[in-house]
Nucleic acid binder design. Structure first.
Lengths: 415, 415
DNA sequence: CTCAATTCGTTCAGGCTCTGGACTAATTAA
DNA sequence: TTAATTAGTCCAGAGCCTGAACGAATTGAG
């Protein structure tokens, strides 16, 4: 339970230092060995040795001599090599499947979204279709001479990550599905084990890497589609809580006298600001089952109404924004983020919802903190979670490149 | 912003491994070197060398041979030596000051609480009085042959921990006070730098070490006195958020139409479940300025009424419990703790407040998580934060014993 | 009582990784 | 052409962990 401090051996030391140097290269590229020695505190000897190992693994590249205008021998520029290793991100959502291949240089090399009504299908069938998508993505990566180092799947539900199982995914109708096993069975063996994570967490990570990223600092990323979820990122890491269920913003109660929720509570945020609730309040049919599947599908009608100034639609969105702002007020008091990021359906509705969100937020977060958190809107599309999943694989490679050096054989004695 | 991976050298490796072994000794004491080699994965040689270093520093002790009933050479039992090093915990609160000396074996060696109305006094005077208390504590430690390795101060307000400053402590009337400098100036130099932290965070840590501790896992510890605060502990570590203001449970809005709060919001939990609000609702005068200062002072009248079955008092506490439960519901959804611990004034009121808290909590935390969080009541007294502060010093020694080995000289290149 | 078996802890050679000074390489300024 | 400057490599050395061998202390069988 207590945070474990693990033994360190020479191998561990080497592995960590490889990560240190790789990280510094990524942050400052192109960069010379001499400068790396400066910023890391290593000797030039050590830096040379570490860079050589990274170069052998294809993670890093020499770009040729560079003179800085100063005198002295010109430096050899070292950069991350984006052309050898990539991460695969996968996403299962209610009305689509998505795959995304991201190279070490954080360039998207392949991206594919397939509309599919996954509510109507068996979990096995869905994972089967996802595996097909993954195989095509791996093939596409291979054609670009990229090796896929690992895969992460984004799933809309509560997970038992250690066991590789989906506990419940209410919007998919799943219950205790061994998604991890099903997926690994269908995939060629990768250097890193396949992993899964909550869609909201991964969408938040997608924002970190592809949105306004580093400027955001610590933030809460709201990512509603059918349900309403939030990914909490503190210092670049996802906060998961004790069992991985942190960030369940959708079931924060915003109106104790409100309508009952499937979760057993009353007046959950999801019942007021979820996609179906907003559509209903705006007088639109619940179109989730119609042909316009895929990201942003069911919302287009609502956006049209809003653009036309339809009063009922506007008030529905305002009411949702107010409820969202109040729930976020609690999140701000409890989690102390720098920024709130609106993603999912709320990024499309932001022009109309933001004022209400901001007002409610300001009313609930007092002078305790010096500045109220900023409110930002995500510019990422519907497959933010797939992007985040791929980015997570890339991040893992960057944080422990040694795993790719030892050619697949697991590192000794990790306890 | 991103979590930094720091370079590892031989010295770092050694330092971490010392911590590994010391931690394992603490967890399993008395324990043989052979068993330590088993559980850590180190060779017997390495364990012997690490234990020898810890023994030289006085952190560890050999207890003589022990036969396990099995055959073979009997083992030499190794245990944490609680008789050489200690941590000092200090606490400034509205109506008292406290100090506490805790040895490495987690035994309390000295404990002193002084009632004092700190609202009426200059910050310099308060810190001065605290320094006196600290000096007496250090002297008391010295008489028991204990070296005080470091000190941590618990303060009821928002802090700039890096700068050693109190930003605001509304209940003390402090604003931008350089508490860290004032304290270090008055104290003899210690091996570890003096540090400060929020009272709620440290009270939560106190619960971890002295309450039901390890069983709690991840938990939210409510610690209201004048204000209402919460310390969030995940896997044995305090969660602080981006600026260290996480856990501001007192300013979660529980009634948007409620009374205005000093923080600028309306209907904050503190306005309904804070000590003054409860006393007022129960028809009691606000006695915080009277002579009954010190922990639990102003509450005794209320507890008497509750024991007498006074309907007005009972309903006031029920209403507070309901509000607290609703705010905690949001905390559970966002933070996903195993347990909620009621401390501060709520531990005294628990018999009457718990049913309401539990009911409200159950209504706001649905089936998303498999089991609702347990509700526990702290058995710690008013100086829980001072205990937690001292425990934090001890924890730091345990997590990095090497700092005490190198005789005060700071370790090289920590960047 | 003696000897084999067993377990504990130490000793010593060896290997991995970082350090630090010396050295070579490549360039600019005089 | 030469001195100065900066980049990167080489090589001996030191710190720390590993692993096999060994002495120490005890139990149980003969």
């Amino acid at each position: 339970m207590r945070n474990e401090i693990t033994p360190v051996r020479h191998g561990t030391m080497r592995a960590r230092n490889l990560a240190v140097v790789l990280g510094e290269i990524s942050r400052r590229q192109p960069v010379s060995r001499a400068r790396l020695a400066d910023v890391t505190g290593f000797t030039k000897t050590t830096v040379s040795s570490l860079v050589a190992a990274l170069k052998d693994a294809g993670l890093v590249r020499e770009d040729g001599p560079v003179r800085d205008g100063e005198r002295g021998r010109p430096a050899t520029a070292v950069s991350v090599n984006g052309d050898r290793v990539a991460g695969l991100g996968l996403e299962v959502n209610v009305d689509y499947l998505a795959a995304c291949v991201l190279d070490l240089g954080r360039r998207i090399r392949h991206r594919h979204i397939v509309a599919a009504d996954n509510r109507a299908r068996d979990p096995e069938r869905v994972i089967g279709a996802l595996t097909d998508l993954a195989e095509r993505a791996i093939a596409a990566a291979g054609e670009q001479d990229l090796t896929v180092a690992g895969a992460v799947v984004a799933l809309p539900g509560t997970l038992d990550r250690a066991g590789g199982r989906v506990r419940t995914a209410p919007n998919l109708g799943w219950r205790d599905v061994a998604a991890g096993d099903l997926l690994t069975a269908g995939l060629p063996p990768l250097a890193l084990p396949a992993d899964q994570d909550n869609e909201a967490n991964l969408a938040a990570l997608g924002e970190l890497w592809f949105g306004d990223g580093p400027e955001l600092g610590s933030y809460v990323h709201v990512s509603g589609e059918i349900g309403v979820g939030a990914g909490i990122v503190v210092d670049g890491r996802v906060f998961r809580g004790a069992h991985g269920f942190a960030g369940e913003l959708g079931h924060v109660v915003v109106d104790p006298a409100g309508p009952p929720c499937a979760c057993g509570g009353r007046g959950c945020l999801e019942q007021v600001a979820g996609q179906e609730a907003i559509l209903r309040a705006a007088g639109l049919p619940d179109v989730t089952a119609t042909s316009t599947a895929g990201p942003d599908g069911p919302l287009s009608a609502l956006v049209t109404l809003l653009n036309d100034g339809d009063e009922r639609a506007l008030s529905a969105v305002r009411r949702a924004g107010d409820a969202l702002g109040r729930a976020l007020g609690a999140a701000v008091n409890l989690l102390d983020p720098d920024t709130i990021v609106l993603g999912g359906i709320f990024s499309a509705l932001a022009p109309w919802a933001c004022p209400a969100v901001e007002a409610a937020l300001a009313g609930g977060t007092g002078v305790v903190r010096s500045a109220p958190p900023r409110l930002a809107v995500s510019r990422l599309g519907g497959d933010a979670a797939a992007l985040g999943a791929a980015a997570l694989v890339v991040e893992r490679v960057m944080n422990d490149p040694a795993r790719l050096l030892t050619e697949g054989s697991p590192r000794p004695h990790e306890r």
